[in-house]
Every structure is written in C-alpha cells, then in structure tokens.
Design a protein around this nucleic acid. Structure first.
Lengths: 244, 244
DNA sequence: CGGACTATTGAGACTCCTCAACTAACGTGG
DNA sequence: CCACGTTAGTTGAGGAGTCTCAATAGTCCG
C-alpha cells in the first residue's frame, strides 16, 4: 500500500508529492526524498485537486490517462468481484501514488474516503519526464518496489485464518501511514469504515466486528468511537500481529 | 510473480534476461524487450550460474548484494513464519527477476526447484547502470510495476475461501509463465510439489490434494502425474477461476 | 528391495460466513 | 432543536469449509 510518513513537511510545503523509500534491491541508502527541482518538474505537469469524501475518481477498466499522488486525506482502491464481494486493494495516504493500469486501463476503482488533496499527473507527460530524468525515475522505481514489498506482506496478512490476528496486523501496519493529527501516539485514527476494513482483510463485516470485540476483551485495544482506536498494550498487539 | 512468455528466443540466444512488460501506468505500447545493447550492458555486469535443484540461493534476512534473473528453470521465493507455516511469495520462471530486499537484506528465502540457469547482477553495479540508462531503467520500472499488479491479483486469489477455486486460479495464472517444452498446449508442467502449491495458496497440503481430486471429479483437469496437469475443459476452468 | 519423502483419504474440531434481528449513529428536513 | 429515515455496526444461531491429526498409499533414489 503506502509509504512511511515524513518528518513534518516544511512550513507551507505545497506538495510533499512522492516520498521515495531509500532502498531498491538493497542499496544501503539512496536519496529518500525528491529534490526541490524534481518536485518543481513534477508540479509543472501536475494538476492539484481538492475533492470531497466519497467521490469516485475513476472506475475499474476505464481508460487510464493519469497517475495520482495523495497530498492529504485518504483514498481507497478497490475492485468489485463477480460474486458481489468487494476487495480493497489498498488504502492510500499522504505521499502515496495510485492509478496503476494495465493495457491502458485502470485495474481498480478509486474513491475518496475523506476530503483529499490530490496531484494528478498525465501519464504521457510523466513518462516523458521519467525517460529524461534517470534520478527521478530511480526514486519512482524505489517507490514502486516498496509497494511491491507491501503487497507481498499483505498477501501474507490475508492468508491468516483468525480474524482477530488479521485485524491486529491491519492496525499495526496502517499506523505509521496515518497522519495522526492528535498528539497521542497510542491512538489510531481510522478514516475508513468497518466495512472497508472487512473488504481489505477479506473478512465479513460481522467478523471484523467480532474481532474488534475480541481485541477489546483481551484489553489490547479500545475502540473509543467508530474511527478511533486506542492501543492499550502495544507489545501484545504487535505480538499477536506477528504471530502468523 | 512473473512475466509473460516470449516467442521462442532467437537461435543461440545466450541471455533473454529481463523481458519487460509494455505498460507502466497505462502508456499504450512501450518497448517490450531489451535492445541488443542493453542486454550486452547487463551481461557485462552479470555472472551466469548453472545450479542444481533444491539449492538455497540465499536466506531471508541475509545481506543482499545481488539481484537475480532467471534464464531457465524454476525458483521459489518463500518465507517461513513463526508458526512453522511457510508462505511462498512467488514462483519464478524464465525472465523473472528476484532478490527483492529491504534495508539491504533479503525479504525471502530463494530456492531452486529444478535445475536452473541464473544471471546474478550485483546491486551496486546495476544501480549504477540504471542511473545512467533511463531507457533501460524504464523497462525495469515496467517490469516491477507488472509484478506489483500480479501481487495484488494474488492477494485476491488467496482471499478466496474454496480450495478448488484457488487451485483453478493457480493453474490459470501460472500457465502462461511456464515454458511448456512439449507441444500440447493443454498440458501444464508443474515443476513444484503439491506442498509448494499449498504454501503458495495458503492452504494445507491436504486441502490441495482434495481440491485436485475435485477438479478431476468435475472433469476440468486431469492430473496425469505429479507434475503434469492436462486441462480438459478450459472454459469451465477459467470460469471457476474467475468466479471469485 | 528398502527407506525416505510425497501425496491421498478419513474423522472430528475450529473458524468464519450467511441470514436475520436489533441497536447506534448520522444527517436531513420540518 | 427534534423526529425520522437511512446507513453503519453489533450480536446470535446455524451451516459450510478448511485445518489438524492420523493412517494409508504411492513414488523416487540409492
């Protein structure tokens, strides 16, 4: 899915854009962030969008013309299966890129969860830019590689059997991706609904609900309200998450 | 996981190396294959290896210094979980790249399944090369992007409940990746064991076995021997695979 | 031919899914 | 500001499917 959070963007930072992850195959320390210049280049071809919640950005299989970068807020990328089930492929937060396509068509449907700021990059212009700026492209490559790792990890999560364990993994995995606006580091603000979480974890809504209840019973997490989880016992929560 | 098969490598072709997939974000038709020159550049930094079956190439968490490309044969990349279960992250075939790392350490363990020919590319030299050849890097980017799509797809596969459906998906997904040496297009040569398939599909070995029996009962596939499956009714097999 | 490994088959336990009823929260309009 | 309707989430009961354990059969290799 996403990307580690950055150390508070500088003052009036208009576009944190892509925050590439340091390591490709294993090079110890690559430039983690875009240079000012690269950012300018990207901004030059980007359109900035401010959008309300619950807005569909594009539909699965629609012709793909743009790549998106999240500036602020939360987006989900999902696919509806023939059976009527829905699978959320990823939740996207600040700095995440989405709009993956195949044969010129989007693979998923993308929809805003909260109010968001997005940057829209026309594919053809972006391609052009990447072909000419190997350094920038390298950062993008790092980013994509990182997403690949996350996707592999997620496949492992979903392969677990027990619902409580999956939910614990979800909480632990998603925590670093969120901009927790509030100070308390032990609380997790979940912008998405239970039902979205269920679709992400490949569980039924009821199973997620029961799993939440179980985590509370075990005193690992307290769900203060629908969108706020407070971690009571991080150690044991992580232990449960990792007990695959 | 992998990559579409190529149209029979030219005569004495010593290194088909990476076969990049045409589309990044959605550009309609990018150069699908490496140029002769790019191939030479890669070969210049590559070591060619011929290895026996069941050889561990590297262990999870070992320091990562090289990326690998499959020239011929089959490799599996897997992770052993604390519970003792094993999850196969990917099967790799001709043209596939593996050796993904994080923080300079391999994420998975890689092991040969059959006898293989591999190309080993030192990360640092490869990085250097990519930074200077934006076109080549672009092809790599396309490749990684493609793997990402496959990983997302796989996450959907594994999220299915029924074993027979998962196995059907596996067969359908893996078919184009194999070099079926024999002429008959309806047979699938599976180099890996049932147990490997189980680890890939996140099922128990027994469940895979029963699922195989069910596919035979339904007359979709005939398992001629342990490593050979003959597709009897492709239409219905695909239908089952897609009935997620 | 033996031995180790791989695969199949059966029985019972466990977990989640589905269906259904109920409760809580939200937001719209009077 | 409150009532109402709609959506989101909780809880219970029964059924479906896989997992585990265990025993059996088949296969590969020396």
């Amino acid at each position: 899915m996403a990307k580690r959070r950055a150390p508070a963007p500088s003052s009036g930072d208009p576009a944190p854009l892509i925050r590439a992850i340091p390591f490709l195959g294993g090079a110890p320390a690559e430039p983690p962030r875009l240079t000012y210049r690269q950012r300018q280049d990207l901004l030059a071809i980007a359109t900035r969008l401010r959008l309300p919640p619950r807005l569909t950005l594009y539909q699965e299989a629609a012709p793909a013309s743009s790549l998106f970068v999240v500036g602020e807020g939360a987006v989900k990328a999902f696919r509806d299966l023939p059976s009527g089930k829905r699978r959320v492929a990823a939740f996207l937060f600040r700095g995440d890129v989405f709009g993956l396509a195949e044969n010129g068509r989007y693979l998923n449907t993308a929809r805003t969860i909260t109010r968001v700021t997005l940057f829209r990059l026309p594919i053809d212009k972006l391609t052009e830019l990447l072909r000419h700026d190997a350094e920038l492209q390298f950062k993008v490559l790092c980013k994509v590689t990182h997403e690949l790792r996350e996707a592999q990890r997620r496949a492992i999560v979903v392969s677990r059997r027990d619902a409580a364990g999956r939910l614990a993994m979800f909480l632990v995995m998603i925590k670093p991706h969120l901009d927790d606006l509030d100070a308390r580091p032990e609380t997790i603000q979940l912008p998405m609904s239970r039902s979205d979480i269920a679709d992400y974890l490949a569980l039924s809504l009821e199973a997620v609900s029961r799993a939440s209840a179980e985590l509370e019973r075990r005193k690992l997490v307290k769900f203060e309200d629908r969108h706020t989880a407070r971690v009571l016992d991080e150690k044991r929560l992580v232990a449960l998450a990792e007990a695959v």
